[in-house]
Design a binder for these strands. Structure first.
Lengths: 179, 179
DNA sequence: AGCGCCATGTAAGTGGTTACATGATTGT
DNA sequence: ACAATCATGTAACCACTTACATGGCGCT
């Protein structure tokens, strides 16, 4: 599933501009996909060229001109088909955090503690964000709800594990060092 | 942390060939990093050129010639330094599974059920692999132990969440459909 | 005979990131 | 005035992936 397909998917729930899509990617999607303007705009251009979406230029007063994209029937069919085809979807993590922790024995205790703390803070803000999104959208559909719940569950588990390890680590190395 | 740095890190625990490194990447590392020969061999060549590692060609009887790489003092220093520098390590997921599930309302129940089942099976084999590795290495260092524990915790949480959702989903759609 | 493991590499492609370039409007 | 938000795009770059290319040894 490349960015192009994902943009098409988001457009199944309504028209949007490239800018709108970027904001969507910064929400729930940010936990399992990333996309910048450098990938979104070319993707939309491609989709328009292959008639998966239509593009309407809109000029509103007091606002910059924008291009509103709307999915076509062909686009909807194509997206549904791509949901069916992919029977072994990839799901992979790329973590510098874990890579570094793997070499914990080469770091000193306060370095490790800092690294763990950094990750905990990161997880906390991610959880906070998910909570905010949940509060905003009361009309939750099954898909987004599942994904959000998945994110929360996994983040909480990671948080618990890291904080437990950190507490233990900070205790055993205390006496001369503090986090 | 690019593949080059990671190879350097693995070499801190002893000499290895490109082939050996690949096998290491297929173990615990596979949960948070991927690397093929196409990245490993060029990485080793670069490291050798910048004197981070030395390369010794070894020819054993009954085996193909191989190049054994060993980290230098310069390499060790460089790696330790890179562990210290990176204060905001990235940790990101790229998931076609979650992307597809986000659009669950566009799929039919057995499609969803199949997708969930596929992921569950995948998680189960990953957990199995981690267990095998744990059994093999009794002389566990803190870093690898942390990473392995992290993987187990997160995978279990994901498994619980998915199977609970699947059970509920399969129940509510039963009567005319089965998984 | 043929498969699988050990072993090393290259070349082309890909899918995305980063930085750049532009510019109006709105709030402080 | 200045920053932030809305808004669109390009071009160069990058790190890796995939497919290709090669070849001996050991087991069945």
């Amino acid at each position: 599933m490349d960015i192009k397909t994902l943009c098409l998917g988001i457009l199944t729930s309504g028209e949007a501009t490239g800018y709108d899509l970027k904001k969507r990617f910064e929400g729930t999607f940010s936990h399992f996909y990333t996309a910048g303007y450098g990938s979104i705009y070319p993707a939309l251009a491609d989709l328009a060229e292959s008639e998966m979406v239509t593009c309407t230029e809109v000029t509103e007063q007091g606002k910059p001109a924008k291009k509103v994209y709307r999915i076509t029937d062909k686009g909807t069919d194509s997206f549904k088909k791509s949901l069916g085809e992919n029977d072994s979807p990839c799901h992979k993590l790329k973590s510098e955090f874990l890579a570094m922790m793997y070499f914990a024995q080469l770091m000193d205790p306060q370095q490790i503690s800092g690294l763990l703390q950094h990750r905990l803070t990161h997880i906390e803000s991610a959880l906070e964000m998910l909570k905010t999104i949940t509060a905003e959208s009361s009309d939750e559909q099954q898909g987004p709800a599942f994904v959000r719940g998945f994110g929360e569950t996994v983040l909480k588990a990671a948080h618990d594990y890291i904080s437990a390890y950190k507490a233990e680590q900070d205790t055993t190395t205390s006496g001369h060092q503090a986090a």
